[in-house]
Design a binder for these strands. Structure first.
Lengths: 202, 202
DNA sequence: ACCGCGCCATACCGACCGGTATTGAGCGCC
DNA sequence: GGCGCTCAATACCGGTCGGTATGGCGCGGT
């Protein structure tokens, strides 16, 4: 058979992420993760030394997916203001509609309360997200496409609001309805600043 | 001895809350909860049928403490705008500085992912909190002390931001510094609307 | 004096789970 | 063919924890 083997750890991490994001981290044991990838626990422990390593690998998988998705959602737009709006819309959608996202991130946050490694991992992701929005907003403002008096304040509030929205959506299912999703996007954008209307030459 | 006994369940719940809020719900077992109240597990199970009942009792204790604290923080002010500002300041402070608050609520939110009873309990608390801020803001606006075009939007964003701030503070210790705490309060208030200056007769 | 009952302690069960020890199958290499 | 490496499967250990069974102790009622 001679499996190339280099992809196996990723396969295992993917199986772990799939289970974690539906049944939670504590709700899944190592036997089930192994079974999800078609192997047994003995093999799983050959690739990862502990459950925590599996969790951190699943985190990295999540971060990679996020990078790809938000890049795909924004890069289709030419104008920077549109990119910013698309990035916010993508984030809101994933907060409100993506149950896997909510389950996984909530568990990771809870785990960060006690585990410094997991906390460091998530801190890195938060930093990356913040840099993304800061950079995009600054560029949109610099290009004269968006008006925002205090970009740092705006992005800070945006980040907090999005985390809060994701959390509260668990308790307010009606906030996940399409019309409320759009309203949430508008509210978040109005919190950021306002678009500069395109100058249409006559 | 003949202990009055009526206070015992609350004592047990208080011991449970103290442990939950420092070491998490999953990190505390029934023996430790009982020991924290000076009894053994047998007694604990005489008062509560399951660990979940203990958890829900600890939740109710938390809600009661919140009611008392936020009432105490606001009622010292005469003007409604001041009350609103004090309520926001209290919430921010408890989000940023109160580790027990963060640990307990994060665990409850994570538990709500899978347990409908816990979720219902926390939903009730969120509703209560929202009603509190909606009512206070509406009254402040009605009394002409505060200007806010869309109270529903403002309170929605406020609730989301506060939950997000509490969560993100775990990963950004510097946001808990006093100067950043005040800045956060100002940002949240600016998100709500603006105070109407007191009319000082000359 | 006796009983019932509220309250508590002791001892224990059974299930679960992370992690390990051990063995073996396939494969490249000499 | 024999050796050694990689990777996988089986069985098992040690410990934890929620929950239960059972018995005891003191008090109030009669």
């Amino acid at each position: 058979m001679a499996t190339i083997s280099s992809a196996k750890p990723d396969e295992l991490a993917a199986a772990a992420f799939a289970l974690f994001s539906t049944r939670g981290i504590a709700g899944v044991n190592m036997d089930e993760i192994a079974a999800g990838a078609g192997v047994t626990k003995g093999s799983l422990y050959w690739h990862y030394a502990s459950k925590k390593e599996v969790i951190l690998a699943a985190c990295n998988l999540y971060y990679s997916a996020w990078r790809i998705q938000i890049a795909g959602a924004t890069e289709v737009h030419e104008r920077l203001a549109d990119q910013l709006e698309a990035a916010v819309a993508f984030s809101v959608r994933s907060c409100l509609l993506d149950d896997a996202n909510r389950v996984f991130t909530t568990e990771i946050v809870a785990m960060s309360l006690y585990d410094a490694d997991v906390r460091a991992s998530w801190t890195g992701f938060l930093d990356e997200t913040e840099r993304f929005f800061l950079g995009l907003t600054h560029r949109a403002v610099g290009a004269g496409e968006f008006r925002c008096d205090d970009v740092d304040r705006a992005v800070d509030l945006l980040m907090a609001s999005m985390e809060g929205i994701k959390q509260i959506a668990l308790f307010r299912p009606q906030s996940c309805l399409p019309e409320n999703e759009q309203r949430t996007c508008r509210r978040l954008m109005s919190l950021m600043g306002e678009r500069v209307p395109v100058h249409v030459p006559v």
